[in-house]
Design a protein around this nucleic acid. Sequence first.
DNA 1: CTTGTCTATGAAACGAGTTGCATAGAAGGA
DNA 2: TCCTTCTATGCAACTCGTTTCATAGACAAG
Lengths: 191, 191
Amino acid sequence: MALEHAILVSLLEKPGSGYELARRFERSIGYFWTATHQQIYRVLKRMEADGRLDVREVPQQGRPDKKEYSVAAPGRAALSQWLHEPIEPESVRHDLAVKIRGAAFDDPAALIREVERHHRAHSDRLAHYLAGELRDFTGPEAPGTSGTPGPPDAGQELQHVVLRGGIAYERMTLAWLDDVLATLHRLGAGH
Amino acid sequence: MALEHAILVSLLEKPGSGYELARRFERSIGYFWTATHQQIYRVLKRMEADGRLDVREVPQQGRPDKKEYSVAAPGRAALSQWLHEPIEPESVRHDLAVKIRGAAFDDPAALIREVERHHRAHSDRLAHYLAGELRDFTGPEAPGTSGTPGPPDAGQELQHVVLRGGIAYERMTLAWLDDVLATLHRLGAGH
DNA sequence: CTTGTCTATGAAACGAGTTGCATAGAAGGA
DNA sequence: TCCTTCTATGCAACTCGTTTCATAGACAAG
């Protein structure tokens, strides 16, 4: 059910259409929750039918009209309720780990290319996150250069701590993939 | 489709019944791939029908009989083929991150308890992994005390590197949760 | 003028995952 | 004796997620 909640959070941060949401799920929100446009349109329709969202037809020039969704009062209440419920610490689903253990029954060295591909993908993500951090969180928050005096915005702070989590995750993953590569090379050499 | 492959790997490591697999998915394999007994029984049935697994009825005393599954030749071939196919780097699904961003529209301080719960859960997991590492990987591999001369077993090495990944993940998560807690406290204090 | 890309939405089918329920013998404790 | 826990397997219903396909106007490149 968490897709609903991710959509509520995203629409509270900024109202938008299904299409726009789909693109946010490729970027910021998508760093910790993925969804395709199919899922999004389906859930938006259901949430609107349930009265959790309001819709507004927005005509546009030079491109198709869009439906802009925003959070209605019941939606906000549903989010608030969910925030106060405990959730289970996430269960991991890591295909690559299955492959690594499976490699014992095949050729371990054949996995090296694959692991290197993953290493590159995580490198790219890390660079992407770091660029985002520099862009969104170092300007107004840098001490002394503050344009907003007083305590920084809670939403900003919370988005930043989530992004720091993404950065820590990618760094940890890269170090582990180095470990995996070293292990695979060692096994290949002894073979 | 990766549940099939996780089952193949687990059955190659050691044949067993659906019940036994379900318990492995609460422990070793479950560290990076979760599955309930429902999923497992359903998939085992399908894989047997497809000829990827062999079954053997094993009568037992003092407990119900069981069906012991083992990997048949086509199953091994299917696994081998999958190992040579590239997979996408996993997409993350992190409920807690959604909650943290959502807290900007509710009471951030109310999340502290929840984050502390997660911290304890991850602490427990880390302790569990470290105990497993000590038990399974430090005895025969400690230099000088080697009971097995020559190169260590590839399966052991690969299981160990996956476990090291789990340990690194838990350590990173704990550090991040500390960061989250500090941020929530800061926001609560400024409020 | 055709091909491709971007915005924008959606149906249909299928496969994966969750939840609740049901059965049943054996062992152990209150 | 009853209650719970453990072993062991399974059905049914439902929700969630993925893949494929379809539509359609605007715009740019070749």
